[in-house]
């Protein structure tokens, strides 16, 4: 039952974050780029206020998979190191937690460029 609820909460919270993104694009008339930037910054701010970790505890992947978690983990790393090492920690800690998303994107982007070729198909 716990497993079922964790899926349900991941689905609902993840879905809601995506709906916020959709509203920014449709109602706010923003480009996908602007939308994602706003969400990342929101994630960072929420972590600064100490609100994002409780959301992860509640929703699991529903909070870690959306791009907001990228802002959260950058801030989280910076804050953790800042606590230990002060000023220098702000810089050194930043990528402590988040490296996986970016390094995966770089490596897989490179591999994809080796294998694939862009194609223009309508459907």
């Amino acid at each position: 039952m716990i497993v079922f609820y964790s899926f349900l909460f991941a689905f609902i919270v993840g879905g809601i974050i995506c709906v916020i993104g959709q509203l920014l694009m449709d109602v706010g008339k923003l480009t996908p780029g602007h939308t994602l930037v706003i969400l990342v910054v929101s994630g960072a701010i929420l972590d600064g206020l100490g609100l994002y970790e409780p959301l992860i505890d509640f929703a699991g992947a529903g909070a870690t998979v959306p791009i907001t978690s990228f802002g959260n983990s950058l801030t989280h790393g910076a804050l953790a190191e800042a606590e230990k090492h002060g000023w220098v920690g702000v810089l050194t800690g930043m990528f402590e937690v988040t490296s996986s998303g970016i390094s995966a994107a770089i490596v897989f982007g490179f591999i994809a460029a080796l294998i694939f070729k862009p194609k223009g198909k309508a459907n």
Partner: peptide
């Protein structure tokens, strides 16, 4: 690309959308 045309932010906001942005630009630049 098809998923994105259907889902909009639904596929752009998850980290897979971040991956898609990087990978599509990499393939394109080849």
């Amino acid at each position: 690309r098809k998923l994105g045309a259907f889902a909009g932010a639904g596929s752009a906001v998850p980290v897979t959308g971040f991956g898609n942005a990087v990978v599509s630009a990499a393939i394109e630049g080849k």
